[in-house]
């Protein structure tokens, strides 16, 4: 039994939790008010005037309502009232809404009118993201669950899906945009602030929807070009030659689903692992990439991400698992 003292505190404690959902939205990595991208800022520059305007309209309507409620009926009041209803209820709102629509459409056009310096295809899969950089005159550079973008340059994201409808949203940078099977949707992002920004799937897509996340890493353009050149390379030779890790990978059949360029592993189903060691997170943005997390991911995949498509390897010999993890961590 609970003591009465505990019970008295129960209510206030729960009340203190009430603003939590609101506060979560303010966390910088996922906040669309962070101003990390030109598109997010454009939306934000609409948001504040709209918010202030709405507040003024709401206050005026409430003031009128109170005034009308308190005044006594009279012939003159009746005439004025009709005029107020006509102008305030029909004409002015029509003009205001039309202006809002116009502003919105102009903003939308401005958002999509930027000419992109970079094209990235992002393919939504249950429950991760296949990312392919299209560089003219060069083979596609394929990676997963992490979108790197250069600061100050507009990137065009071509959004597709192979299974169900997903929606790509990196709130701090802009968006969101649905990924519809059979269609290619276009989203432009112009990051302005260096950093690692969080992204997520914003359309319910099945069991692990809530764990379908990604990172947008914004770097200086020079650093981005270096990274892209590295990413286009096959797997690091020192990782392939070392400690029988590649053999452990191939023996366990990992290559059935995963590709490591430069080896015979050419599986098309899961994320490309050629440079997995250079990514910040695993499990589609779920947990930080550490040897311990990776080991748990391989041996108990479904515990880390319930519903995940990748089957677990709890029966892998411990030393084979260790070699495998060390190998994957070395794939920088």
């Amino acid at each position: 039994m609970r003591s009465p003292g505990t019970r008295t505190w129960c209510g206030p404690r729960l009340l203190r939790l009430a603003p939590l959902p609101v506060l979560c939205g303010c966390e910088g990595r996922h906040s669309w008010l962070a101003g990390a991208g030109a598109e997010a800022r454009a939306i934000e520059s609409l948001f504040w005037p709209f918010l202030i305007g709405s507040a003024i309209v709401w206050t005026a309507v409430m003031a009128f309502a109170v005034f009308a409620y308190r005044s006594a009926a009279s012939d003159k009041g009746e005439r004025v009232g009709r005029a107020v209803i006509l102008w305030g209820g029909a004409v002015v709102p029509t003009i205001v809404v039309a202006m809002l629509l116009l502003t919105g459409l102009l903003t939308l056009r401005a958002l999509s009118a930027r000419s992109p310096a970079l094209t990235v295809q992002v393919d939504g899969e249950q429950w991760w993201w296949r990312v392919a950089y299209r560089v003219p005159g060069q083979a596609e550079v394929v990676t997963a669950n992490e979108i790197r973008l250069p600061r100050g340059e507009t990137a065009e994201l071509l959004l597709t899906s192979d299974d169900v409808i997903h929606s790509l949203w990196a709130p701090a940078l802009g968006g969101k945009m649905d990924m519809v099977p059979g269609r290619t949707n276009r989203l432009t992002l112009t990051p302005l602030t260096i950093g690692s920004w969080g992204g997520l799937c914003a359309e319910y897509c099945g069991a692990a929807h809530a764990q379908m996340r990604f990172e947008v890493v914004v770097t200086e353009p020079e650093a981005f070009r270096d990274w892209l050149a590295d990413e286009a390379m096959p797997a690091a030779p020192e990782a392939l030659s070392e400690g029988g890790g590649l053999d452990a990978f191939l023996d366990a059949g990992c290559g059935a689903c995963h590709t490591i360029r430069g080896t015979e592993a050419d599986g098309p189903v899961g994320p490309d692992l050629t440079h997995v060691g250079g990514r910040g997170r695993i499990g589609a943005g779920l947990v930080p990439l550490t040897a311990a997390n990776l080991s748990r991911w391989i041996s108990h995949t479904d515990d880390v991400k319930p519903g995940v498509r990748m089957p677990a390897y709890p029966d892998l010999a411990p030393e084979a698992l260790d070699r495998l993890v060390a190998f994957l961590m070395a794939l920088k």
């Binding site: 059949g253 689903c257 592993a265 098309p268 189903v269």
Partner: peptide, 28 residues
């Protein structure tokens, strides 16, 4: 040999071995 990306089919040979080559894991 190659599986299929769209249908999410992994390649059989990665686990079951190709030709006379035995599978990589004894459980296969």
């Amino acid at each position: 040999t190659h599986g299929d990306e769209h249908d999410e089919l992994p390649s059989c040979m990665s686990c079951h071995g190709a030709g006379k080559e035995p599978p990589g894991l004894a459980s296969v």
